[in-house]
Design a protein around this nucleic acid. Sequence first.
DNA 1: CCTCGGCCTTCCACTGGCCGGAAGCCGAGT
DNA 2: ACTCGGCTTCCGGCCAGTGGAAGGCCGAGG
Lengths: 246, 246
Amino acid sequence: MGQSVTARVLRVLAAFSAERPELMLTEIGRRAELPLTTAHRIVGELTEWGALERAADGRYRIGLRLWEVGALAPRGLGLRESAMPFLEDLYAVTKQNVQLAVLDGNEVVYLERLSGRGAVHVFTRVGGRLPLHATGVGLVLLAFATPELQEQVLASPLKRYTSKTICHPDELRRALAEVRRTGVAVSEGQIELVSLSVAAPVRGPDGDVVAALSVVVPAGSADARAYVPVVLTAARGISRVLGCPD
Amino acid sequence: MGQSVTARVLRVLAAFSAERPELMLTEIGRRAELPLTTAHRIVGELTEWGALERAADGRYRIGLRLWEVGALAPRGLGLRESAMPFLEDLYAVTKQNVQLAVLDGNEVVYLERLSGRGAVHVFTRVGGRLPLHATGVGLVLLAFATPELQEQVLASPLKRYTSKTICHPDELRRALAEVRRTGVAVSEGQIELVSLSVAAPVRGPDGDVVAALSVVVPAGSADARAYVPVVLTAARGISRVLGCPD
DNA sequence: CCTCGGCCTTCCACTGGCCGGAAGCCGAGT
DNA sequence: ACTCGGCTTCCGGCCAGTGGAAGGCCGAGG
């Protein structure tokens, strides 16, 4: 099963990560758990097609061709394309970090981030994943997710990241109810200790939540709630462009 | 050779395009020139891994997981990450279309585009490809490319897109020399009839050109050359962040 | 200078995973 | 109820993929 060629090809691709975006053939073989010879052949074919590229020093990295194909993901580029103008406006007005994320499995995946030069530095990275309970966008996405997913997350251990991280199921349940009631998540404590985030849901053509939008502001700044109206407005704007009835 | 499983997997991925980002199994089989059964199995494995997703109507599309891997392309995300703040500034100042592109093979690949709501509508698309001779960024990238590539392009037929497209080798040769002399390409006639573009090179750690940056302005507006200083400044700013000596 | 070690590449005989025809399933259109 | 188009499952033959082994390359260290 883990022996099919297709699976091996995917394991080769999965060998690359944000921490190690350039690998030697040997490393690919080790990470993908493939014999060197097999890795060599697969990598060769991937390179020929453009899914991988060789750097000047002979190491391999993800190629532009794969980036292009990945850009076709409707939940990637499509969403991003529609949302971009609103994110730019939001950034222009607030000069803070603006983020767009979607739900995948039981995690948040960040699609886009506009970060001001002067704004708080955040750990998130475009293409990165974080657990649902620890971020503003995660709370929003979870609040409007299927009951099954909510139960699954509530039943699983909630890892603590900061002193403000929601770690208890009851606490999380209350937070989710609050999000559903108000339509926004004003969550204290992102991954960073010194930031607040204001997040709101983005809805698709069927009226269901397809993404979440957030602004991350320094904890020291003015009342975070002051950002609620602009964030909500931007989120509704994107929803409208996506064809949300409402 | 075109029979290896790896190649077939890639053909399945290549079946998706910007025009048709969602496909039925049968269509994938037809486009990838694979028997239905084979397509079925490969698509199944890709879906299980997350490289593909199934839409509500059962059609397949590129999955988030593949988007994530694609985002690891150093010439994709890495460049983009460094350039973003400068693109935002450039956009804020000009309120025109701002584009970032790299050279791949003998084509331009667009990495990023910030398009003003009011700005000229351009055909380019993030992840899209265009020939080198027909765009501002293309001229810049070609001007600093290897002599071999320049010869290759000069020797190939130059397709006409608008009345202003550079179609003659001599004309192109002169344009390239001008770009090398001034360090910027002010090209009349993009793909659109009514736009001008100002493009400048972005240099990497070794001092070689790794990308190009451009602003596309409506032909009717003020002198396009007025944009040269800001574009050059932004391009140099990105180069500096990338570690260009200079 | 030679040797050693790490990495990459090529070669080739064996074998087990892939191929694809065929048959069955499902839902929509008539 | 029948048909048609698309999807899924099944299974035997066979060939493409596998991976051990050997050789080439380069840089470090003796």
